[in-house]
Nucleic acid binder design. Sequence first.
DNA 1: TTGTAGGCGTTATCAT
DNA 2: ATGATAACGCCTACAA
Lengths: 329, 329
Amino acid sequence: MVSIKDVAKQAGVAISTVSKVLNNYPNVSSQTRERVQKAVEELNFVPNSVAAALSSKKVGRIALLVNLNVSAQAIDEIDMRYISGALQKAMEYKFDVITLFFFMFKDKTVDELIRYLQSQSITGIIIYGLSKEDLVIHQLIEKQIFKCVAIDAPLMNDSTSCITIDHKTAQYEVAKKTIEENTGNKVLYIAGKKNGYVTDDRIEAMKKLAGDMDLILDIHYGEFSEKDSRNLTFKYGKKSNIVVCASDLMAIGAMKALQEMDIFRPVCGFDGTTLMGYVGQQMNTVRQDFEALSAKAVEELANLFDGQKGQLVMMPHELVQINYTDIIV
Amino acid sequence: MVSIKDVAKQAGVAISTVSKVLNNYPNVSSQTRERVQKAVEELNFVPNSVAAALSSKKVGRIALLVNLNVSAQAIDEIDMRYISGALQKAMEYKFDVITLFFFMFKDKTVDELIRYLQSQSITGIIIYGLSKEDLVIHQLIEKQIFKCVAIDAPLMNDSTSCITIDHKTAQYEVAKKTIEENTGNKVLYIAGKKNGYVTDDRIEAMKKLAGDMDLILDIHYGEFSEKDSRNLTFKYGKKSNIVVCASDLMAIGAMKALQEMDIFRPVCGFDGTTLMGYVGQQMNTVRQDFEALSAKAVEELANLFDGQKGQLVMMPHELVQINYTDIIV
DNA sequence: TTGTAGGCGTTATCAT
DNA sequence: ATGATAACGCCTACAA
């Protein structure tokens, strides 16, 4: 393996000079800089990021902390797109990335989690799918030992940013559109997980909409699960004119239930997953660009590494109708 | 951060002794071993795997090389389950894991890929979704610089193993069952990707079945894509009595096409993904335990690290019928 | 501007 | 059985 030492020898300079060139330090003459770069080219040198991580705690080794929801199948698409988006952007920044799942740290304390992350020389973390009940992760964020970026969870401090879309507006818009395209003012809203960050925002939006449009709003928590949504629809679907769901998966559950009950109610979802294309119906939903959100999170982590303070970053969303032919293009 | 040095001090022994205890070296008295272990407990010491990786090239830092198929959406579930299964098992073995996607190395040479992996101190690789056309990866395997485990690609050498199910038998069984449950002897087989490893095996199985059952077999390549399968079904579906597909996604494409053509043909798939539950029909398919396959790959990597030679490991499969209620339990 | 040297946390090779 | 000590490849004061 070709090391920085070989490059130094080839370029006829000291190791530290090579290091300075590699890390874009100011005090290097353009001549030596060129000589070093030439040597790097010739030897096809790639710096060993493990050694770099060991010697300098500043270098970006980041962890993706994903809350894989095993109970809600088919939600995989979202996590996969998150991971893919982050990895791609991390490559640009030359960040090392390790992927972790929440379930790996079940029954672990914050300290244990911290020690694990430190044992991996992790300096930055991106958190996906955080809910208010995940105490350990919250403690982790509060301690500010690592730079953090939370997706869809408005937790900001000096070393923590949040990337999200405007869930309130998005929920308002998609529900309004669906209601306007149909008739009736009795709306069943199947909300997400109790204590979920986005859940409350969206409920608030629905309440505002109910005020604005003079709706009778029936709210139930569906835990983001298809089964819950299905059961709630069996229970309350008949009494309402329209079913608004907090996720595509729940919208599918609702729709299937309505079909089995042999009644029609317009349904709308949230997320814009391709899964929606397989239910054989056209449905309003909110499309999120999960890759872009995740890529932005990596950028934000880079900003935090550069000393910037944590902030809230709002990403755009889009109202769409997804149907089968959209999917298989 | 508490280091091995602190443990040594606490236990009143030398650093090297602590290291020996941690790595289960033989020549340590049980007394000192206990003392060290006690110190580890007290200080909540977790060894820094980055430093270990730097110091010793033997330690298991492994990379998951995933061929994310962006054109075939909804196949995400399989990759996600692969990744999840590997990470979980890797934790048991205390392996470090990084996840990489094929698209990250587009237009890169073997040597560039090797250098990248070396820069990450990677010693073992698990490869998912390899096809015969991925030259660079094949060269990587041949060079035997890293221990490799390929999923569903029968590439074995001293440092390369393969984990797979018996695709030949599985394809034979699921097709036979579907044909026996229905009538007719004209079978449309929509095969996977040309040059895909499993594709040829499965075609062979179908040919054998055709001989055994006296079938008229019509084979077309569908590239594992739903769209291809859909189009092929439009073209050739009518002429046959039964449609056998090389993946669930393709089975769905075929079924949708048949629905649009308003004709009925029994269809069977392959993989046992939850997606099958959303098509509103019951269908024979082959269920693979992707997590288990991936976990086995990690175990196999551990074996290779221990000096074992590469081998072929066959995992079990299961014939199932998936329908909506199976999914939402 | 360039080079020297100490350190990051381990592992591994020697002596002892 | 135990302990110095030199790597591993890189970063970074500090010195020249």
